[in-house]
């Protein structure tokens, strides 16, 4: 029993306080503000909107933990989506079979990982700043995507893709199930594997990690590859949800994913941050936008409120650290 409690408290941790408080605040405010808020419809819409942003945030999380950033995530997702679309169209378009989709998806994940591999190699071997490397990769991929699609939509996919974007199993949307699976995968990766361990250590001090026998180059390359692969999964989900691929889809998510990570207590300099609080932060962001929608506001106001929420959490963190020093001085 004790060890179970320990485990629960370990899961909860102190870094969950920020998003946890925000979660409670959001629930209370909207329950009072809008009678429809505490209904299945709200949570249904959250459950369907969460996965795209969530998967991209997972892709952003790993590089941030190493002290970097991957600004290419949204366009990596687009390019991966294009890869699937290309393979499906090559194999009959609307009439393509599930096998073609499966192979296409694997190809897409490969493409995503390849973009990550390239960034990881440059970052690991030249020590160029990840912001710059991923920024130029982003500009490149955006250009590549626009070049391939001439700025238009690609659509016309087989009908069996519908459920992946819109279906449910036992009332739980399939995209959400995929997200939860990926969240758990990332959690295990970060807490229970050598790669995850190395990710945190590199984030705090890459040279000291190298002196301690961690293969820092390998870890960096793998981190960006996994980030790219996760983008690809997001890209496939987006393809299924919109039944089309357009370069620029989800572009506005880019900085939101960074915001979600910081809101979830991830250290902006790397080295600290856990998946579960980040997941909770994502739920809060999505509840906020759904709640505001119910009250008649649009997504843009929600975006602004997200920014305000991030500042509020940072201010609280600042105030609490001040308060602590103040208290100790007195005692």
């Amino acid at each position: 029993m004790r060890s179970f409690l320990n485990r629960v408290s370990h899961w909860v941790g102190p870094d969950i306080a920020g998003p946890g408080a925000a979660f409670i605040a959001v629930m209370i405010v909207f329950s009072i503000g809008s009678p429809q808020f505490l209904t299945g419809a709200t949570f249904g819409s959250v459950a369907f909107q969460l996965p795209e942003l969530g998967l991209l945030t997972l892709a952003m999380l790993l590089p941030i933990l190493t002290g970097g950033l991957n600004l290419a995530i949204t366009f990596t997702a687009n390019i991966a989506g294009l890869t699937v679309a290309w393979y499906l169209q090559k194999n009959g378009g609307v009439d393509a079979g599930p096998g073609a989709f499966l192979i296409g998806s694997l190809l897409a994940i490969g493409v995503g990982a390849l973009s990550g591999l390239l960034m990881g190699l440059v970052i690991a071997y030249t020590k160029a700043h990840p912001i710059l490397v991923s920024l130029s990769m982003m500009i490149f991929l955006r250009g590549l995507g626009e070049f391939l699609t001439r700025g238009g939509d690609v659509s016309g996919f087989p009908a069996f893709l519908q459920p992946i974007g819109h279906g449910s199993i036992l009332g739980v949307p399939i995209p959400l199930l995929i997200l939860i699976a990926c969240v758990l995968l990332w959690h295990v990766l970060l807490t229970r594997t050598k790669l995850g361990f190395g990710t945190y250590m590199i984030g705090s001090n890459i040279e000291a990690a190298r002196y301690s026998g961690i293969n820092t180059r390998k870890v960096l390359v793998l981190v960006y590859m996994l980030s790219g692969a996760m983008c690809a999964i997001a890209g496939i989900i987006m393809l299924a949800r919109f039944n089309s691929v357009r370069v620029g889809h989800g572009e506005s998510y880019l900085l939101i994913t960074v915001l979600a990570c910081f809101l979830g207590g991830v250290n902006p300099f790397g080295g600290f941050g856990r998946v579960i609080p980040v997941f909770l932060a994502l739920v809060v962001l999505q509840l906020l936008s759904s709640g505001l929608n119910l009250m008649g506001a649009n997504q843009h106001l929600a975006t602004a409120v997200w920014g305000i929420l991030l500042i509020a959490v940072m201010l609280l963190r600042w105030a609490s650290s001040h308060f602590k020093i103040f208290k100790r001085k007195k005692g």
Binding site: K194, S204, G213
Partner: peptide, 20 residues
Amino acid sequence: LSLGLIQPQSIADNLVIASL
């Protein structure tokens, strides 16, 4: 300070880093 130990990280993680 900058090569021997990873100062911000925990005592436990610093101890096991080379023998995972």
